[in-house]
């Protein structure tokens, strides 16, 4: 009959309004404060709306009502089924387990990135030794200026004039943001079949080699200062670039060697670990930037170069141990957590 839909809606009006209200509140973060009764009510109303969705489609034949209920049922479904632990807990778990175990799982691409970067820096070093003028010319090339600045973040100035203590904060912020930029580019470049990553690693490695050799060749008295000026943060920064490069190759591996999966699925699977690694890279770079801004530039009265080298050595050992052992489980007999079974298909 004409008016059946209206009658139906008038009957349901109170329930639907209540569900709208509960959903709005829950999505604004009030779900945790729901009383027991309210949670039960949400469950009831969810099932009611889901049943009505079928009615709206096949009995009442009202696309508008179906659209309305579709949205509500979807929202309720995600509230009921989502897994979200407390941010602090998941952050601790990320640092103590997720990141180091992702590192161990994906050690191969990370080693590949390390090899490439070190190889390129070796070539850069040789090139500079063969022809210093050419090496310096390379550094001044406009395309490389940003790289020579970012990779070694103007150690030239750092050694020549040692920054004033007052400028430490801004220096540190500059270094962090620049390194993050380089690392993000290296990761994102992986989706271009790894070519973007390759480019970033090779260019950065080359510049690193040229700058390094330049300092090492500048005189034996400066060698100690060179290492003291580079190692305290370098022991974190260089591995961070390795990891970022490895992360880029991870995405590339999904594209190039998908195995039994489709290319899309392979990239999505690698993407999970890739984002864990990238999160770790950001944290390491923040730490390295703080060290670079606040510890590296300390003058001799505060910390002699030997002290800095010792600090760097200790930091490196701690960092390596962390990556090697944190969250390590010898044999896991646990069955993998079952995925929530939602199937997706496309209607044509």
């Amino acid at each position: 009959m004409v008016g059946d839909l209206t009658k139906f809606l008038e009957e349901r009006e109170i329930s639907y309004r209540r569900l709208e209200d509960l959903l709005n509140r829950a999505e604004r973060g009030a779900l945790k404060r729901f009383s027991r009764d309210e949670l039960v009510e949400l469950g009831h109303l969810y099932r009611l709306a889901a049943a009505d969705l079928a009615r709206a489609r096949y009995v009442l034949r009202s696309p508008l009502l179906a659209e309305y209920l579709n949205e509500m049922v979807g929202r309720a479904h995600h509230l009921i089924h989502r897994r979200r632990s407390s941010p602090l807990k998941s952050f601790t778990k990320f640092i103590m387990q997720d990141f180091p175990s992702a590192f161990r799982t994906e050690i191969k691409p990370i080693l590949l990135a390390a090899t490439l970067l070190l190889g390129a820096s070796f070539v850069g070093g040789i090139a500079y030794q063969l022809d210093p003028e050419w090496g310096q010319l390379v550094l001044r090339a406009p395309e490389l200026r940003q790289y020579s600045e970012t990779v070694e973040s103007s150690h030239e100035e750092l050694l020549a004039t040692s920054i004033d203590e007052e400028q430490m904060a801004s220096m540190s912020a500059y270094i962090i943001t620049n390194n993050i930029q380089v690392c993000f580019t290296a990761v994102a470049g992986g989706i271009l079949f790894g070519l973007g990553t390759l480019y970033t690693l090779v260019v950065n490695g080359f510049v690193l080699g040229v700058i390094g050799t330049m300092f090492l060749m500048s005189g034996p008295d400066k060698v100690l200062y060179f290492w003291a000026g580079i190692l305290p943060h370098g022991v974190l920064e260089i591995p961070a670039i390795f990891i970022a490069g490895g992360t880029g190759f991870l995405l590339a591996r999904g594209l190039l060697v998908p195995g039994t999966l489709s290319r899309g699925d392979a990239v999505r699977r690698e993407g999970r670990n890739a984002m864990k690694l990238l999160g770790g890279v950001v944290l390491i770079l923040v730490l390295a930037g703080l060290i670079e801004g606040f510890i590296t530039p300390l003058d001799e009265t505060w910390m002699p170069p030997e002290g800095k080298i010792f600090f760097a050595f200790a930091l490196f050992l701690a960092f390596a141990f962390y990556l090697w052992r944190a969250g390590y489980r010898p044999v896991s007999n646990e069955a993998p957590e079952p995925e929530v079974t939602s199937t997706t298909f496309r209607l044509e």
Binding site: T6, E20, I191, G264
Partner: peptide, 21 residues
């Protein structure tokens, strides 16, 4: 890479449906 899509979201309220009906 992320397995995401961008979909439309029309926020209807019960009054919209009732009025249309």
């Amino acid at each position: 890479a992320a397995g995401t899509v961008v979909v439309k979201r029309r926020r209807l309220v019960i009054d919209d449906v009732l009025n249309a009906a």
